[in-house]
Structure formats: structure tokens, C-alpha cells
Design a protein around this nucleic acid. Structure first.
Length: 226
DNA sequence: AACTTATCCAACCGCCGCTAC
DNA sequence: AGTAGCGGCGGTTGGATAAGT
């Protein structure tokens, strides 16, 4: 293990403390519980091991598929991904990804790249980007707190993209992303998810490992959520 | 059976953003 | 505006165990 393993006695003390005082106030937990552990260790032990309804054991096929899809959308934002998998912790998801999926997917991606060499790919171009732009986060940083509050209360982003005779619409309101692909007035497929807007914006700005994300990926994901 | 190597996963560490002062 | 304290997050570590030779 990467540190000193927790004993049953320590687990019992921590559980008792949380039951008595509730979650939060982690800085006080070591003192209240009488544990010789730092606040972070206590929090982690509770979240990853002692919390009720934690699912242990192998990941189901549906869970693995979900992780792959979400990782494509969100990158290494394990807590957000775990939030979509009841009973799974961010640490579990991260470990599973690092041990099982990253190698597997790297191999698959290498294969894809090889195949894509001979294929000309046309990506949809953003035509109308409502209140959001590529520099949205920079703009937001320069806004006053009041302005940010006003903006976030409106937060509706609409994107209208033409590609191959299809209209693609992506809309974000608060914590929800809605996307649909329609042709000749009728919806071909729809996609809806309740992510935090901030995370979505980060993706749009190409921050972090999510920079791989693009319209094509989203449309691919729509199939999954049909 | 004994040893080596690979894999798994709980725990730790350092950083970040937020809040209060 | 600057700073300290906090919760939270992702990356990394290293001991336990399984698999291979």
C-alpha cells in the first residue's frame, strides 16, 4: 500500500465520529474521533471505503462502457465520472482506468490512427456560437462577481452547426447539456446529460486532457444515449 | 518449491479554487 | 489586495498478491 493501512479500530472510530457529527468539517474529525490521521486521510478513508452503499468488486460491462464514454467527454475528471456511476468512487474509477482501460484504449487509438491515415475526415464547423466563444473563460475571468452571477443565472449556450446536410444543435442550461441531430425538420437523435456547466465550458475551451473532445465525439456519444 | 515479474488498489502528496478575515 | 485555512481533486507511490518461469 502507499501508506499506513487503516486498522479496524480506526475505521470504527471514524465511522462513529461521522455518524455522530456528520460529514464535513474534516479538519475537526481527527480530534473528534481520536485518530492519529490527517484530515485528508480521514476524508479519503470515509469516501473511498467506509461510506455506505459503496459498490465493490468488478466493474460491470455497462459501467465500463459508461466510463469510456464519459472519459471521452470529460477527460480525467474522475469525481464527475464517478458521480454518474452509483456506488463507485473516483479512486475506484481512476484505478480501473489506469489498470485496465488506458492501455487497452491506447492500443485501439493507435490502430485507429493507422486506419485514419488514408481517410479524409471533414469536421463540422461552428457557424453560430451564442453567448460562448473560444475565449469564454478568459472573458469570464475579467467579469465582476455580480456580472458572473447574472451570467450564470442565464447560462444558456446554443451552437448551431452545419455538417453534411444535417443541423446539429447543442445547448447548455445550468448543469445540463442537450444536443440533437436533425434532418429536414425532424430529430434524428437526441442526447442529454446533466454535467456542471463549468466542466462543459472547459471542454469547449479545450482545457486539460479534454482537448481531444470535439463535435464528432459528441455525435458519436449521442448514439449511446438514444 | 523458490524466485521473479506484473498487476492491483489503498493511501499519500501536492496543487487548486473558494471563503473568511 | 493579500493571506491563511479549508475541502476537494488528480497524480503517484509502494505493499500485497497473483501469475509466470
Amino acid at each position: 500500500m502507499g501508506g499506513v493501512a487503516w486498522t479496524e479500530e480506526e475505521d470504527h472510530l471514524l465511522k462513529k465520529c461521522i455518524q455522530q457529527y456528520g460529514e464535513g468539517k474534516w479538519h475537526r474529525v481527527p480530534l473528534l474521533a481520536g485518530l492519529n490521521r490527517c484530515r485528508k486521510s480521514c476524508r479519503l478513508r470515509w469516501l473511498n471505503y467506509l461510506r455506505p452503499n459503496i459498490k465493490r468488486g468488478n466493474f460491470a460491462e455497462e459501467e465500463v462502457e459508461m466510463i469510456i464514454k464519459l472519459h471521452k467527454l470529460l477527460g480525467n475528471r474522475w469525481s464527475l465520472i464517478a458521480g454518474r456511476l452509483p456506488g463507485r468512487t473516483a479512486n475506484d474509477v481512476k484505478n480501473y482506468w489506469n489498470c485496465h482501460l488506458s492501455k487497452k484504449l491506447n492500443a485501439l487509438e493507435a490502430e485507429d490512427r493507422q486506419m485514419a491515415k488514408d481517410v479524409q475526415v471533414t469536421r463540422p464547423q461552428t457557424r453560430n456560437v451564442g453567448s460562448s466563444s473560444g475565449k469564454r473563460s478568459d472573458q469570464k475571468q475579467s467579469l465582476s462577481e455580480k456580472e458572473v452571477q447574472q451570467e450564470s443565472s442565464m447560462s444558456s449556450l446554443t451552437f448551431d452547426v452545419d455538417a453534411d446536410g444535417h443541423n446539429q444543435m447543442l445547448e447548455s442550461q445550468h448543469d445540463n447539456i442537450y444536443a440533437c441531430l436533425h434532418q429536414q425538420g425532424s430529430i434524428v437523435s437526441e442526447f442529454s446529460m446533466d454535467f456542471q456547466l463549468e466542466g462543459f465550458e472547459a471542454m469547449m475551451n479545450g482545457e486539460g486532457s479534454s482537448s481531444q473532445w470535439d463535435w464528432g465525439d459528441l455525435l458519436l456519444d449521442m448514439d449511446f444515449y438514444k
